[in-house]
């Protein structure tokens, strides 16, 4: 108990002696965590959206002629020739018109001047969930275009491809900001502790002469690094949470966030980021302790 009290008191003393540098370090750690966590949050949401979009993939084959009941088995067989699918839905002109009318709701009046035949008939093909490879979807799309009376195939693969590129780009940004996080936390905390050590060099030398144990000298410095990590990560994540809340309240409704079901980190991921911050800063302080303190 006495040991713990000394370690805590010594840590407090260190923090007071170099408070200016400590605040700067805390801000740097906070900003690093905020930048990394911000991109990581977007990335994780994009990944989730990407997975969901992959699940919702369907290919629509627009036809230039209505499909009769007799034609259906033949078309279904041909589609299955490419591979098994989840389901196939035939949509007639009238059904397409009814759907559009239902989607427009109160504004369906605009369809009054158009006849129920103005939309083309189509076949909606829902591939199996495991068909999430864009090249394969593209091949399937090309195959469907060879069906009798097929005029156009809409697969959304171009959009998915662009979405994939964006997600990859974001992955690079996350990796870069992650590297920034590692560098800033370990090196800056290490540098700050070096300043602490230098400012207390005389005292540390006397402690050494008085027989202070390694734990007595090193633990407060280690604790200082851990505290920097905990507070910096905590503040960074708190700032991100408020930023998220602000964005969510400003852009709520049928917009971008609604489309991607934008969500904050789950508690376990928040804890993991916090822990990573603590570990990185502790590693930074260990560097300093090993390099600059002679026991």
């Amino acid at each position: 108990m006495q040991f713990l009290a000394y370690i805590l008191r010594q840590t407090g003393k260190n923090l007071r002696q170099t408070w200016g540098t400590q605040v700067m370090t805390l801000l740097t750690v906070t900003l690093s965590v905020l930048i990394f966590a911000f991109f990581f949050l977007i990335y994780t949401n994009m990944l989730r959206a990407s997975a969901r979009l992959g699940d919702d993939v369907r290919l629509i084959v627009y036809l230039d002629q209505e499909v009769t009941e007799q034609m259906r088995p033949g078309l279904e067989k041909k589609i299955h020739d490419f591979g098994p699918v989840e389901k196939i839905v035939f949509v007639s002109r009238t059904e397409a018109f009814a759907r559009l009318s239902a989607q427009l709701g109160k504004e369906k009046d605009i369809l009054n001047d158009l006849g129920p035949d103005f939309l083309p008939p189509s076949i909606e093909v829902y591939p199996l969930k495991n068909l999430n490879d864009l090249t394969r979807i593209s091949q399937f799309s090309d195959f469907l275009l060879t069906l009798p009376h097929a005029a156009k195939v809409q697969s959304g693969s171009d959009w998915l491809r662009r979405f994939g590129y964006f997600t990859n780009l974001l992955r690079i940004v996350v990796l870069l900001s992650g590297s920034l996080l590692i560098i800033s936390m370990t090196f800056i905390v290490s540098y700050t502790l070096r300043l602490t050590v230098l400012s207390r060099q005389g005292e540390l030398e006397i402690l050494r002469l008085l027989g202070a144990t390694s734990a007595y000298i090193r633990l407060p410095l280690l604790l200082e690094g851990m505290l920097q990590g905990l507070l910096g990560s905590g503040l960074g994540l708190t700032a991100l949470y408020f930023l998220y809340q602000w964005i969510a309240s400003r852009f709520s409704g049928p917009g971008f966030l609604k489309l991607f079901d934008f969500a904050f980190f789950p508690p376990e991921l928040t804890g993991a980021i916090l822990l990573a911050g603590v570990v990185l800063c502790t590693v930074g302080s260990l560097f300093s302790i090993r390099r600059f303190i002679r026991i």
Binding site: G202, I206, L209, G211, T213
Partner: peptide, 22 residues
């Protein structure tokens, strides 16, 4: 050992010529 030196110094009091006070 280093720990041994630390323990030993806790039992030896040294008053230095240059005081070594903070």
């Amino acid at each position: 050992s280093t720990a041994g030196v630390q323990r030993m110094r806790q039992k030896i009091g040294v008053a230095y010529q240059d005081f070594r006070l903070l």
